[in-house]
Design a protein around this nucleic acid. Structure first.
Lengths: 353, 353
DNA sequence: ATGAAAGCGCTAACAA
DNA sequence: TTGTTAGCGCTTTCAT
């Protein structure tokens, strides 16, 4: 049998046995030299050098599958997340990779499309590849994923959305929402009329993050007056739905509310598709906040206060928990950041921007 | 020696030997049944069923490192790309994962931060894990990466940026830029004055994509009048630089040019940070196009025509080339898409929006 | 229709 | 200080 579908003539990748023959040493010595355990094995500087010379001359690189099989661990760290094409999760990938590599590990990040079945299959695959640990970000079914990890003895941390049986690192959604709400209420033309009160717009109250954000919104808004149920509208995340809901809201109130807290970028996108049909004056008596950040949103025709989650901070803390072998289901909260609008306030709000 | 740092009591993952004992069959039979090669081995329906029953009762899942080692291939497909936090590349990841999984492969996507050294290291790692094939997207040094793949006999395709010694799938940048330029020139208040001519803004002419886009811009603009060198300003991608350059340009021309083709989203970001300092009237005699797409950019106070690259199409074509075992350095071009502005035109341009 | 046995490339006791 | 050897869990001839 051919070793591989090697193009005729191309010599196959050298193994430690090849190097051992060339360097006149034993395979185990070569192995030790090439994987760093040679100091402990008290191998002489001379042989080490000789072996390394041969290795690089031959263009050797270790077969990581063989090493992983032998060591029963792969050097891979996994992260699952719902989607890539989202600013927050993309930032998570970026941080995750950087920090994994800083630790000499190979990052593998896979998206699951918020599909519980796909999520399970993905994690099973990662476990089958013997990932050493797993970050579980925004899982659809955190408990199921956690159970799989525990069964396979894979250390794991929940990120962004908490889960059972292992530590969690989440954004401080209450704090962020409270800060955002307070910030825009201080600038909003509140009043007794139907438009005079703040509205929380979008998201799913069944989801942990939204629940905390609503709580934060309530806490901040309470300081400015009583809250009615119709001020909180968690209708989901779909842009199309958001477009309809904002139109309905404007109809009901006779215009935009004095303060609008938009829960996610997808919701914001929907809202915008309605906004472009409105005249510029429509925005003169409203202040908009968005929980989540997009640089372009900062440059709309009206100012937007935004919350940016600290993706790098979340990932860093998750790695620490794994390294410290924390297994208790502690929940660590990481503060997000408030981003000021770039657009200049215009109309009656100009002075307080 | 412990098999693994298994928590005391937790039984280790079952192997085919365990299953063989339980199902009263041989390891090779178990293996065949569990990896699909059993039909070919003419194993009876009955034993197959018996083995599968035991397997799922024991919660068996194959050790993919062992399989990979034996088969000299891993079932992993790799993709490298510059960064995750970019709409285009994020869309690529998303498509790549979907299509890899549709083929029963495990996707591994890694970013290299446009750092040639990091890029090489990353690819070496992927090869060491025996990836079966590799998509090379937007590489800093395509030739070096390709050489590594060839040495390891890993099939590979360049995406987005062409490279030597293997097929490439790239956006049809010439066509896209031509279309975009023509579209905005048809709407622009061109004229003899300094502001009356189109400007191509940002990017690096040394980079293949920008070069093609400039060519497309030239081709389209030529139909509307002669081009001067100062109408093409490829100063790079940095937002801060873009902000400075646009300010300079406005100074020089006494306002915005009649038509502005912005080369990338990062450049656009920089441009916007200058735009927010301008009064609304500044935008009344200009038409803006952007090569690259962001939904929020469609909702700015002025209309923006955008080009969206077909990430899914690029990836799909790349997979096809790999499956068809194409090795010649053909270059396949995939047409991007023109996205109309969502913002209503205002001022003198209202009617032609 | 099934089993026995030889490795894939590497690591880690244990011996020398 | 170095070598010998026995696997890691799986696939795959080759026998039966």
């Amino acid at each position: 049998m051919e070793r591989r579908s090697t193009p005729a003539g191309a010599k196959p990748k050298p193994t430690i046995y090849d190097l051992a023959a060339l360097a006149e040493a034993s395979p185990s010595t070569v192995s030790a030299v090439l994987n760093g355990s040679w100091r402990a094995r008290r191998i002489s500087e001379a042989t080490a050098l000789r072996i390394r010379t041969v290795a690089s001359a031959e263009g050797y690189s270790a077969n990581l599958q063989a090493r992983g099989l032998r060591r029963a661990r792969s050097g891979l760290v996994g992260m699952i997340l719902p989607v890539h094409d989202n600013r927050f999760f993309a930032a998570m990938s970026q941080s995750f990779e950087a920090q994994a590599r800083a630790r000499g590990l190979c990052p593998v990040v896979v998206s699951t499309l918020r599909d519980p079945a796909e999520e399970i299959r993905t994690v099973e695959t990662l476990i089958a590849y013997a990932v050493d640990s797993l970050l579980i970000a925004g899982a659809a079914d955190p408990a199921a994923v956690g159970a799989l990890c525990r069964a396979a003895d894979v250390s794991h941390v929940y990120v962004d959305l908490p889960g059972p049986g292992a530590p969690s690192v989440v954004s401080d959604n209450f704090w962020g929402a409270e800060l955002l709400t307070r910030t825009i209420l201080e600038r909003a033309p509140l009043g007794p009329g139907p438009r005079g009160r703040p509205v929380f717009f979008g998201g799913d109250p069944a989801d942990h993050a939204t629940a905390r954000r609503i709580a934060g919104f309530r806490a901040a808004a309470a300081a400015f007056g009583p809250l009615a149920p119709e001020q909180i509208l968690p209708f989901g995340y779909a842009p199309a739905r958001a477009a309809r809901e904002i139109a309905l809201l404007c109809d009901r109130l006779g215009g935009l509310p004095a303060a609008l807290v938009i829960n996610a970028l997808t919701v914001f996108e929907g809202v915008l598709s309605h906004f472009v049909t409105l005249p510029p004056e429509a925005f003169e008596a409203t202040v908009v906040g968005c929980y989540d950040y997009d640089p372009f949103a900062a440059f709309l025709r009206f100012p937007v206060h935004m919350i940016r989650q600290n993706a790098a901070g979340l990932v860093a803390r998750a790695f620490e928990l794994i390294e410290d072998e924390v297994r208790d289901p502690v929940v660590v909260e990481i503060a997000p950041q408030l981003i000021a609008p770039c657009t200049i306030y215009s109309g009656p709000l100009r002075e307080i921007g």
